[in-house]
Nucleic acid binder design. Sequence first.
RNA 1: GCUCCCAUCGUCUAGCCCGGUCUAGGACAUCGCCUUUUCACGGCGGUAACAGGGGUUCGAAUCCCCUUGGGAGUACCA
Length: 480
Amino acid sequence: MTVRVRFAPSPTGYLHIGGARTALYNYLYAKAIGGTFILRIEDTDLERSQAEYERLQIDDLKWLGIHHDEGPDKPNPKYAPYRQSERSEIYQKYAQTLIEKDLAYYDFCTEEELEAMKAKAEAEGRDPHYEGKWKEPQFKAEALERVKKGEKAAIRFRAYKKSYTLNDKVKGHVTYPEGMVGDFVIVRSNGLPVYNYCCVIDDMLMDITHVIRGEDHLNNTVRQLMIYEALGAKLPEFAHVSLLIGHDRQKLSKRHGATSVNLYRNEHYLPEAMCNYLCLLGWSHPEEKDIFDKTDLFKVFSLDRFSAHAAMYDLEKLKWVNGEHVKKMPVSDLIELIEKEPESEFFKKQSAEWKNSCVGLLTKYAQFVTDFPKLVNELILKEKPEMTEPLKEIMSWETTPKIVSFISAEVEKASSEFVTEAELNTWMDHVKKEMGVKGKPLFQGVRAALTGHDHGPDLKFLIPLTPVTVLKKRVEHLKG
RNA sequence: GCUCCCAUCGUCUAGCCCGGUCUAGGACAUCGCCUUUUCACGGCGGUAACAGGGGUUCGAAUCCCCUUGGGAGUACCA
């Protein structure tokens, strides 16, 4: 039997970091084992669901390189449709069967009655389980009659009075004691089914073999276990992955800042880096690697390397992972990405040789693709760098003004667009031999004259990348 | 409140299932050193953890119990 896994988001907002991680785990498992990855849309909460979010989430998934084999846009006739809002008849049909078998019943209680019941139970120290009259068999005929007349009623599942044990792939044996949940609603009075119910119907009908999802569903699983039992359906394997938490150790949510994938996408993080980092939160590589790509994961991903405790989302490490992926990327790919960045007009106009050399030099300093245009602007194109304290210090040395006027004259003489490394060496040699300056005053002086900075990348690579026109302006600026 | 889950460096984690090889390994961050005629890059190294208490055992990070702490769920949300 082939493995079938699913990611089932609710289109109530942007794709969340945590959702992306869950989707990734499902996707990786399917790929690693030769299974099928299904995307199902859980839009039964009509008030909060929006079609636009479905599109946006699928788009973010695509960006991350998490591609589904089946879904609303790629239906397999055997399992379609993939939106819960389009599966109402199916849920209704099964609900009817459950009622016929007395495994569920209609409930006409109003919200107020329910709340009163709950308050009373709490006051008496009992679990707030449903104790309305409609669960009694003698009211079944009346209920059926009222429904036939068109009266609205919720459908409630008759919870089994027994304990359950789940053998979870991450948590091990989880025991749900008897009476943990009371009779719960599976279909709302407006006719729409509820998550814990349609989730089971769909997983059953879609032949889902492994349910990989967040730990926030762990307690709910007992309800689902009951429905599986009532339906006589085969249980899938469950893997409840630990939650992602923020710096306050609370479940990661909007108030923790950037938690939606599109934000990182907008900031031009590399999708491979996002996947790499997300995968690392709660899962470990068998060889203890920190940096890897999907091709590697397809070979080694398995469900037995999850950690059971929550993982704190740490932007610092994400940034580092992104930097590692930037460094790993082929130069030609990197150039292509840099050219898509805003403010890279100058970069685009340069020769292939210049670009290669530039990327080769700046990669060490860049953690993001967006850093390249910034570094080019700062290190190569800036004509009037600020007079910083360390720079003032260098200017105060008695040798520096002499170096500056020498360099100034040389730069004025230069006729080509760029200075070559050989030319730069000649200048350095001159300062060294004719002016008798060496060591720190030599290098720092030349650096100050040509870059207007006290630090930065190696001069012999940096200066040949800098237009002579810029060099001229810098020396002028420094002298003035 | 009740129920469930969890507990190794500041953070992500390896080790735990199958006790000894763990004076607990790696990574991020942090600090220091080296190299570099400058500045970097880089290299090397340091600080830093088995929540606490009981058992079991010749021996426990690893098995059991309790305490504490954290998280989640407890909806006609998903």
